[in-house]
């Protein structure tokens, strides 16, 4: 046990946990975007609501949800610890930094992008997660699709969601492939595949997410 805590308190161990929780959160995105894409059947939300109802009541999903929040909190906590340590590692900064010469802006901005995502999550959970929980707690039926339509009929929510999705896109563009490197997985043959997969995954998932508020706002999805 002491050996394990030693690993997790090391710089490499902390990054390992960051990558592991990151990939876990990515696996959740796959489920989330798949289920939400049911709205594109454009059947008045019948398929989507059936899926949402399953997710809200299935006991296995309920247990996994606890794991999801634990993973999210761990990811945020580690990010804070790492950021504070990194600040301490350079007490006096440079007057001139030409970061664009050696790295992408989003790889250097994971903390800011993550903070934007956290702010977005507060809005997002209060829009959808809280009403669903209240309904489950009160044993009342909940029309999640109607809730979506109500939220996405307001332009400012559409704007907030688009900012959230763009933050997610850039967070994923770096995070997906970076997590593999942190786990020690780098290979001449597979790393280019992981990088390509990460790029396409980020773009496709974010396009699908962005399409949801936009199509609802424009009345394409009824």
């Amino acid at each position: 046990m002491s050996k394990k805590s030693g690993f997790l308190s090391s710089s490499i161990g902390k990054k390992f946990l960051m990558g592991l929780t990151g990939l876990f959160l990515i696996s959740f995105l796959v489920i989330h975007v798949t289920l939400n894409s049911f709205i594109f059947f454009n059947d008045g939300g019948a398929t989507f609501n059936a899926g949402a109802d399953f997710m809200a009541h299935n006991p296995i999903i309920r247990i996994l949800e606890i794991g999801l929040f634990a993973g999210l909190l761990l990811h945020i906590f580690q990010a804070l610890v790492l950021t504070l340590e990194n600040r301490k590692a350079r007490p006096i900064g440079y007057a001139v930094v030409k970061g664009s010469a050696n790295s992408s802006w989003y790889s250097r901005s994971m903390g800011i992008l993550g903070s934007l995502l956290l702010l977005f999550l507060v809005v997002h959970l209060s829009n959808f997660w809280v009403p669903t929980k209240v309904a489950v707690f009160n044993h009342t039926a909940h029309d999640t699709f109607a809730g979506m339509k109500a939220v996405f009929s307001q332009w400012y929510f559409v704007a907030i969601y688009l900012v959230g999705v763009i933050s997610l896109l850039y967070h994923l563009l770096h995070g997906f492939q970076s997590s593999f490197q942190s786990l020690g997985l780098n290979h001449k043959k597979y790393t280019p595949l992981i990088k390509a997969l990460g790029m396409w995954f980020s773009i496709i998932v974010c396009l699908l997410f962005a399409a949801m508020p936009v199509t609802m706002f424009l009345g394409i999805i009824k």
Partner: peptide
Amino acid sequence: GFGNCTNTGACEAECPKSISLENIA
């Protein structure tokens, strides 16, 4: 008191001997 790796790749790009990130993995 060195910081933690964020995999930005700046080190590899600026290394005068082009040491690869594969070493970090």
